[in-house]
Design a protein around this nucleic acid. Structure first.
Length: 490
DNA sequence: GCGAATGAAAA
DNA sequence: TTTTCATTCGC
């Protein structure tokens, strides 16, 4: 299969027609080969490891060939000084660029107050670890497509202060915040940030690309809504500023062009007058009534699914037609696939519909009320029939009825959560009984663990070394790899 | 209010 | 190169 898609190569974007699918497919296909088995103990299988270092497999797992993604954050250590896995990837033939700056000074004893013992360390990205959770991801596509009017309203609420657009990571953290909280059993956002920060570099390119794309859209729409905006950080740090606030020469409120004054910390940038000028955004008019065409969340989730379950058939509710377009075989509804149809062109983003749309059938999907976008999104996410119960749902929050089959306890916990909880107990590692239970859950009980994936390797271990990402069941069964971008979308 | 994260953008 | 600030909300 390696040669199958040699044509596409470059980012897929180049060929113009594949909308990036090529790269994804290619990657997924390639991925199949490299996720070797890893050898971990059960606890690691939960996607958590407790201390010290990340299991070596991690490197191989996610980075063996990710290098193409230069990811600056590819890092070795986080800003807080916490070493995020692989200080030395098998590959990191040294020189990985880490200490370009002696952490010393500016870094300045970053004083991490966060109790790290409470922040779980991951062995897999959140997209994998939480993929089967019922907690929906935030609809980032909808978010980044907020109409200009809405954006301006937000500004008004802030008394005229225009905030910066969120970057890819912030969007990511935001998207996974709820799940992360659940997953970690912590409501503390510091933990969420920490975990997200650790997860982010582990995310496969498909996922990060998706968030990068959303970040671009967000920036574009932000710029469109606030044409005069310019980031103007204050010289003085906020906290310092606070202190000298009293003697502060020009209280923000005063020099604010619009005279607006807002208390609170974000008093920083003297802002331009936004409001007005609906004329600026011709393309945004009526936008709100337009269904969010992107649904990119879907595609990235979809990609994610493939990434995780290489070689496994796609969920029954996702299929490709002869043109390579995704659709739901059950409803016949088409699902807009993938990444940026029209990449970076901000205005396109606000455009009612992408030019490409399509086939008559697809109208069904596009015609959905914006609110239903989420449904498609959600259903596409379901990876097991068992989970379809949650589809079409509004925000579905954890329903544990399916676990109740083999567990009766009231506050059901995901397996890893039980593990986490166990860790919170005094000493000792894992309760043997827990291990057994987990083993049973993974191996036999079909009551579908929400952490099937995370547990996968554990099962593998016990069954005798299967791939973390799962057995190679008929590669042909996988729809994606067989579909070549050149097949359709011409 | 601080902090925990990464990244964009300004200084 | 260094600093601010996007988000969030428990502590």
């Amino acid at each position: 299969m390696a040669m199958a898609s040699t044509e596409i190569v470059t980012q897929g974007r180049g060929s113009g027609d594949d909308y990036g699918l090529g790269a994804i497919v290619e990657h997924n296909a390639a991925s199949t080969e490299q996720f070797p088995q890893h050898t971990e103990d059960s606890s690691k299988g939960l996607g958590i490891y407790h201390d010290g270092y990340a299991p070596a497999y991690q490197d191989g797992q996610y980075f063996v060939q990710s290098p193409p993604t230069p990811s600056p954050s590819d890092g070795i250590r986080t800003r807080s000084g916490r070493t995020t896995r692989r200080t030395d990837s098998p590959f990191s033939t040294s020189k990985s660029r880490m200490s370009m700056s002696p952490i010393g000074k500016s870094k300045k004893s970053k004083k991490t107050k966060l109790d790290k013992s409470k922040t779980p360390h991951l062995t897999a990205p959140l997209s994998v670890l939480t993929k089967d959770m019922d907690v929906p991801l935030k609809d980032m596509d909808e978010w980044v497509h907020r109409p200009a009017e809405v954006r301006r309203q937000e500004v008004e609420k802030r008394n005229g202060y225009v905030t910066r657009p969120m970057n890819s990571f912030m969007l990511y953290r935001s998207a996974y915040a709820e799940r992360t909280k659940q997953w970690c059993l912590q409501n503390n956002h510091q933990v969420v940030s920490s975990v997200s920060g650790e997860s982010w570099p582990m995310e496969p390119p498909e996922v990060r690309d998706q968030f990068n794309e959303w970040a671009r859209i967000e920036r574009a729409n932000h710029a469109a809504a606030h044409p005069d905006y310019k980031f103007s950080p204050s010289k003085t740090s906020s906290k310092r500023r606070k202190d000298e606030d009293s003697d502060e020469d020009e209280p923000d409120g005063l020099d604010d062009p619009d005279g607006e004054y807002r208390g609170g910390r974000s008093v920083r940038q003297r802002r331009q007058i936004i409001k007005d000028d609906p004329s600026l955004l011709p393309s945004s008019h009526g936008f709100e009534s337009t269904p969010y065409f992107g649904q990119q969340g879907l595609s990235y989730e979809h990609a994610q699914y493939q990434y995780v379950t290489t070689g496994r058939p796609l969920p029954s509710n996702v299929a490709y037609d002869h043109n390579g377009l995704q659709y739901n075989p059950q409803t016949g509804a088409y699902i807009q696939s993938t990444v940026p149809a029209q990449p970076q062109y901000q205005y396109a983003v606000q455009e009612p519909l992408p030019p490409r749309a399509p086939t008559p059938q697809s109208l069904g999907t596009y015609g959905l009320p914006s609110g239903q976008t989420q449904e498609v999104f959600a259903s596409s996410r379901t990876s097991t029939p068992m989970q379809q119960y949650s589809q079409y749902g509004q925000a579905v929050y954890p329903q544990y009825q399916y676990q109740a089959g083999y567990q009766s306890a009231a506050p059901q916990l995901y397996e890893h959560q039980q593990y986490l909880q166990a860790q919170l107990q005094p000493a000792h590692a894992i309760d043997p009984s827990l291990e057994i239970m987990l083993g049973d859950a993974a191996a036999g009980v079909h009551a579908k663990s929400h952490f099937e994936t995370a547990m996968g390797d554990m099962t593998a271990d016990e069954l005798g070394g299967m791939d973390y990402y799962d057995q190679q069941t008929s590669p042909d069964a996988t729809l994606a790899p067989t579909w070549s971008p050149t097949d359709g979308l011409k």
